[in-house]
Nucleic acid binder design. Structure first.
Lengths: 263, 263
DNA sequence: GAGCGTATGTTCGGTAACGCACATAGAAGT
DNA sequence: ACTTCTATGTGCGTTACCGAACATACGCTC
């Protein structure tokens, strides 16, 4: 059961057994509450988080308070790459965009495993590239594509990292992620709702027609998705035995940082 | 003299002596001709390039032919990170944006050194983070800032990576990099020229007033610059003995790829 | 020095997204 | 039932940038 929980995260799941067991000794399961700031911009990152069933956004906050998401991280990745690369800080705020849980571990423990140079190193390096490409595609998308297209891409990327086809998100929050006006999201989402691609009411969005969303989305979605599956091959049949809630008593709350729910 | 040439690149220059010497055995100096495609999008990357006095852009080319630069690499970095991360390919085209020369080496030789886990590994990992943050800031900038601001940022980032205060660039090429219309660049550059910040004629831009450009630029420039100096501290006094052209006879041309000068 | 290719300048109508103001409507509490 | 809070819907003038067409001007070649 325990090991099932660990492989819920693709990075951990792809490790060879001895490494996975070594890391398991350092992992603790923590609850990821929506809106919690996991890493504040510029702050020292003490832990890495391997999402199990939550989604974390990397957000840049401008001097004037405007925001823009640069990447989305789910159980396909890890929050805290700067710990691996040695920077230990990043100008991006890591914030929980969809509640759930994650495996947490101390920075030095992961660095130690990384330096052994085995499959953990390989996976983390590959994930580093996948993340970089996702960020690059965000840049491209922000430059060239319409809000409508970007919304589709964002919805797809989000539900890909969640179990079902629903997500808890107000249009206002989506607007903050995309760095656009809330009214713009209302317009775009309205169109999608009228064509039957999605339905939503008060912060509860359901994706009804994935194919339609993919058709309306820009190429950016596919580029990132393809690159992820190339770099981090993941047997989706293994995903069945993932999750399976452990005893909640053992959950630890991540430290709450100042402006959680800042949005 | 030889070692002077090597330290012209900040990554190589920051290595401890034994590692630098080990890498030197694998380095060959190559000429980087403006417009040459160093790595085509999606192609296997056989070499890494450590720029000496050239500038390389990472460009994404959309299906419809539109382009957007995601990052600029000069002697502060290395072209070919996917070789380190293990992906060996990237959806970005690497293209020479300002001619000059670079140190080139075979992918496997660099990977070998990386796996030794010494200062080369450390520097490359830190550069990986710096590059990621540059790309992220491109995303933010594309979302929130005006063409005027972006042009200032771009000019600053470019001349920072060149010796003087001049650069050879038509407005049309800049437009391709920024992913905007050429006319837009003409407008923005015209304003800068009238205020005396820059002057240019037919593909030759001279920065006259750096301070002014920095004032007009958005915060993105500073964020990236600060992060670079935090992650890759570099003694600028050492830069004096950099460059110093070796014999041109020993220069090799990088393989020319299909659509060089595609822009 | 005439001709030509390329770089830059300018104009004009169109549109996507913005900023703001305000209307509606579901959810939650008293 | 009533208020209150939050989420969503809508209209309107403004702006930045786009797309296209066209004008100028520099520098090279013959």
């Amino acid at each position: 059961m325990f090991s099932n929980g660990i492989v819920a995260n693709h990075i951990l799941g792809a490790l060879v057994a001895p490494e996975r067991e070594r890391l398991a000794a350092h992992l603790e399961r923590v609850k990821m509450v929506l809106g919690t700031v996991i890493h504040e911009a510029g702050a020292l990152q003490a832990h890495v988080y391997f999402p199990i069933d939550c989604v974390v956004s990397l957000l840049y906050v401008l001097e004037n308070g405007d925001t823009a998401e640069v990447a989305i991280i789910g159980n396909d990745g890890v929050v805290g790459m700067p710990i691996i690369t040695g920077g230990s800080r990043s100008p991006h705020r890591a914030i929980v965009q969809a509640g759930g849980s994650a495996w947490r571990m101390h920075a030095r423990d992961l660095r130690e495993e990384f330096e052994r140079g085995g499959s953990a190193q390989q996976m983390l390096l590959r994930y580093s590239q996948a993340l970089t490409i996702q960020i690059g595609q965000t840049a491209v998308c922000n430059r060239h594509h319409s809000l409508d297209q970007q919304l589709c891409r964002w919805l797809l990327m989000s539900i890909d990292r969640l179990a079902g086809n629903e997500l808890s998100m107000t249009q206002d929050l989506i607007a903050h992620m995309l760095g656009v006006r809330r009214e713009g999201v209302t317009q775009a989402a309205g169109k999608l709702q009228r064509t039957g691609a999605i339905s939503y009411q008060r912060g509860r969005i359901t994706v009804l027609d994935r194919t339609h969303l993919e058709a309306l989305s820009c190429e950016c979605y596919k580029v990132v998705k393809d690159e992820y599956s190339r770099l981090l091959p993941w047997d989706t049949t293994a995903e069945a035995n993932a999750g399976g809630g452990g005893d909640d008593a053992s959950l630890h709350e991540p430290e709450m940082v100042g402006c959680a729910r800042a949005l």
